[in-house]
Design a protein around this nucleic acid. Structure first.
Lengths: 352, 352
DNA sequence: TTGAAAGCGTTACCAT
DNA sequence: ATGGTAACGCTTTCAA
């Protein structure tokens, strides 16, 4: 049986280089001055011995784990108990991990524990909380424990500025203006009154936009737990109105598909008789027929911003303020009534 | 300015309970015997003081971080540099995190570093490697460093048994049999010869199945980097044959959509004139029209199995062997030629 | 420029 | 049943 060789420590390097551990530490961390010769010798010894600093030792010594946690909400019925079923969420995860690594950190993926106080057990330097509930108790617990938190999406009850959010108002107006550009006269919105900033902000923007133009808003609230079906219902109801809308903006995930269902069922062609735009992009919308115009919420940028913001909070910044991520409107066939728009593929309309 | 209070250590608990740190440690870890009274006192002190053991101290002491890393391959052009664009991958991630937590561990999401040897720096107890390349160098590096690895999907050049894979052969046969059940006479397969076990096994199973039945196989290999378009091309070519197939099994992700594209374009109705089944399920297939029959690779179970297998490897088991996850055929409209099958929604055909 | 030693928080060994 | 203490691997302070 082979002797399980312990992996080398800094002492082994010191011995191999014929210096003290202090010197090794100083060299590998680029701290104080060392003789270039010694430095070379140490570096060589590190390579020879195959030494890697132990994270746990560094963490214990410094009190910093160099790890951020990304905490996703549990979902009652969702896959794997989490709400990670959309392209958006996935890109958020990937983006956070990539950004963390770029910042010399690691990303821990943490399910929101049943007992919220377990969050403190993670022993991380900071937590990114995605989709906080209104007045999220997790934030309270983490604050009390002195663990920095930033949220992705604004917590409706918080004003501390430690969050990243999309420019929902601006992107809503951009969608509406685009629809008008394409000939829409009566634009309805299908959304939800679930307590999330995204819904609240888009609704408010829609209502404001209508008011500015003296238009009567057509707002329908649907069940986000059964979005496709309830969006189809809402669409049927809308299209049966005497003055039916000729364009619909559908915000909740999967809602646009319900709109398409109803449109097909009622024989209304999209975009011929009805324009359709979605509040959040996804591969499904890109691949559906017709492909659906949607707001790209830029999850990768959002993730990067969240990591950056958390880093600043960890560093002790006091007022980094909320970070607003600029969205992008991805125009596809479902809102292209006027032919001859640039090329034939989807193109992007960004702010300004 | 407030005095930044250090978070309490085990000594604080000991002091509060009037016992030694040893006793506290023993109590919280449920080790040796302690007087029930003392135990109570200690537990109370823990709660009072609000003490949480520091992971880093435990890790340093024990040499075990209690962390697994999940490592995804980089993708040349993929989103965020990774291949995390499918429902499958997302569920894999979620499943691994959930399983890790259930096993008293944490899950680190690690991008595959440009310098593979950086994998060792993660300082984790084990690594789950998704979609290994053929003869993946990361495995070599990790093995050399003594870090346990299991892969999701078999590495084509490995035989050590430390992997989790779907029963690709069985599920392929199940699909083919189902198509025959539904009246298919000539079944083509669209897949790829990219060096992944999944492709290799499904192709082999298809060829074997054909041979058993003395059928001439119709195998088309497409470009997995542009699956939709190349699958559409392949479909056009297949449907133009003198003896065109009346059923197609499309394996690579997004390939089934290309088949649908071509079918629509050529005016062949699905499932009326052409049956279509997909090698990997996704939300897009569920939501497309018609909904497409697909193999559910059970990513959540796969993830759970991977974590379990890695745990065994970390524990020093020698021959845990590969774990085979049984897949499930999710039958949807695209292969339902014979009406009157159970209910009207999709149903599942599992093994036996 | 270099080195010795203290100490981070925990667990395990060995006394008592 | 309980407690003192060494040790895990590293960084930092201080002294030489």
């Amino acid at each position: 049986m082979t002797q399980r060789r312990q992996s080398p420590t800094i002492r082994d390097v010191a011995r191999a280089a014929g210096v003290s551990v202090t010197t090794v530490s100083v060299v590998v961390n680029n701290k104080g001055r060392v003789d270039p010769q010694t430095r070379e010798r140490v570096k060589q010894a590190v390579a020879e011995v195959g030494w890697r600093p132990r994270r746990s030792a560094q963490a214990l010594r410094s009190g910093q784990s160099r790890v951020f946690a990304l905490c996703f909400p549990r979902h009652d019925r969702g896959v794997g108990d989490w709400l990670l079923n959309a392209d958006y969420d996935m890109q958020l995860v990937v983006g956070c991990a990539a950004a963390a690594v770029d910042a010399g950190r690691q990303l821990l993926l943490a399910p929101r524990p049943r007992d919220i106080s377990d969050l403190v057990d993670l022993d991380v330097d900071g937590v990114i909380l995605a989709d906080p509930q209104e007045g999220d108790p997790a934030i309270t617990v983490l604050n009390r424990a002195g663990i920095p938190v930033v949220t992705i999406e604004r917590d409706l009850r918080r004003t501390d500025g430690w969050w990243v959010e999309a420019d929902s108002a601006a992107s809503t107006r951009r969608v509406l203006d685009h629809l008008v550009d394409q000939g829409a006269e009566t634009i309805a919105m299908i959304t939800s009154d679930a307590p999330w900033a995204w819904f609240e902000d888009t609704s408010a923007a829609y209502l404001g936009w209508c008011e500015e133009r003296k238009l009567r808003p057509l707002l329908r609230l649907i069940d986000v737990d059964d979005p496709r079906r309830s969006a189809a219902d809402a669409t049927r109801s809308l299209l049966s109105l005497r003055k039916a809308p000729d364009a619909i903006v559908a915000i909740p995930r999967h809602a646009p598909l319900g709109v398409l269902d109803a449109a097909v069922e009622m024989g209304r062609s999209v975009p011929g008789e009805l324009l359709l735009a979605a509040g959040m992009d996804s591969q499904t919308l890109e691949l559906s027929s017709p492909p659906v115009t949607a707001v790209d919420l830029r999850p990768l940028e959002t993730a990067r911003a969240a990591v950056g913001l958390l880093e600043r909070r960890v560093d002790g910044d006091e007022h980094a303020g909320p970070v607003v991520v600029e969205t992008r409107l991805v125009v596809r066939t479902s809102t292209l009534r006027r032919a001859g728009t640039p090329g034939d593929g989807p193109y992007a309309v960004t702010g300004e």
